[in-house]
Design a protein around this nucleic acid. Structure first.
Length: 282
DNA sequence: ACACACCCCTGGAAGC
DNA sequence: TGCTTCCAGGGGTGTG
């Protein structure tokens, strides 16, 4: 659920409160969160002690994002997080009561304040990354960053035209363009007037241009409001994103299209609930 | 190359 | 009221 706007909103907010803070101590309550890239296996070694050593006494130099990952640059190495469905990074002024906060899995004591990784469903993960090379190797399968100047229309068009997958699947799998998930994939398709189950190869140049532009428009608009809080997403201070008020189709199955008043259709595409307007989208 | 099923996990909503 | 089932979906893995 945290897609690019949610992750980017968190990154921006974190930058204002943890930059140049030193990590005093690290508490790991749920070792499997730092096990390995969300691929939880019982036979993986417990990295708790290594992780504490890795973090402690280092200073936070930078907070960056690639796709839906946030990575915190330290004096040496990086702490990388992926929120998956319900992960959160929270900045707390006081030490949280861990007895009450049962979903906080990792807690960093900073020289001012506390940083917590919270995750109700424990799908997400936190990794220690030693080098720039290792960091890059985590990103090798990712496509273009849609809000970067390097997001090129001709490259986008060429790759989309070559794909026999549905638009929905292409957007979800992050290989051509990153950052879209179930919410924004549907929103972008609606804004662009194309149905999510269309094949990439079937799209006209004009349709591709609309998709290309609307990806950037909807992501930027959402970031401005702190993202979409539909379930658990919050900013590091616990406040909610407000983009849910602007959603056109996601979560509105059966309700009237804001443009033509036709009831919106719900259908499973690429294994995910998908909502579209059969009148407005061709 | 694709499609699909299944898994990880919890809590809120809906159904009975 | 209380119990059961369904649903939310990012992404890794396995199978056809």
């Amino acid at each position: 659920m945290p897609e690019l706007p949610e992750v980017e909103s968190v990154r921006r907010a974190l930058e204002t409160c943890i930059l140049n803070r030193r990590i005093i101590s690290t508490t790991v309550r749920t070792p499997k969160i730092i096990a390995s890239k969300g691929n939880y296996r019982l036979d993986l070694p417990d990295k708790t002690d290594d992780f504490k050593k890795f973090c402690n006494q280092k200073t936070i130099q930078k907070v960056s994002r690639r796709a839906k990952n946030i990575f915190i640059e330290l004096d040496s190495g990086y702490i990388l997080t992926h929120f998956k469905m319900t992960g959160q990074l929270l900045f707390l002024k006081e030490k949280p009561n861990l007895t009450q906060e049962k979903h906080i899995h990792i807690l960093w004591e900073l020289d001012q304040g506390w940083l917590a990784y919270k995750d109700i469903r424990k799908f997400g993960y936190v990794l220690m990354i030693e080098s720039r090379e290792e960091l890059e190797s985590h990103f090798t399968n990712y496509g273009m960053e849609p809000l970067s100047p390097s997001f090129d229309f001709e490259v986008f068009r060429e790759k989309m035209k070559k794909s026999s997958s549905t638009i929905k699947k292409i957007f979800l799998d992050q290989k051509i363009v990153v950052g879209l998930g179930n919410i924004y994939a549907d929103e972008v398709c609606f804004m662009s007037g194309v149905r999510p189950m269309r094949k990439g190869s079937s799209l006209t140049k004009q349709e591709l241009k609309k998709l290309y532009e609307n990806i950037q428009i909807v992501l930027r608009r959402s970031i401005e409001t702190g993202g979409t809080t539909k379930y658990t997403h919050t900013l590091p201070d616990g406040s909610q994103g407000r983009f849910v008020e602007q959603l056109q189709v996601y979560g509105r199955a059966g309700e009237k299209c804001f443009v033509c008043s036709t009831p919106l259709i719900k259908e499973v595409v690429a294994g995910r609930t998908t909502v579209y307007c059969k009148m407005c989208q061709k």
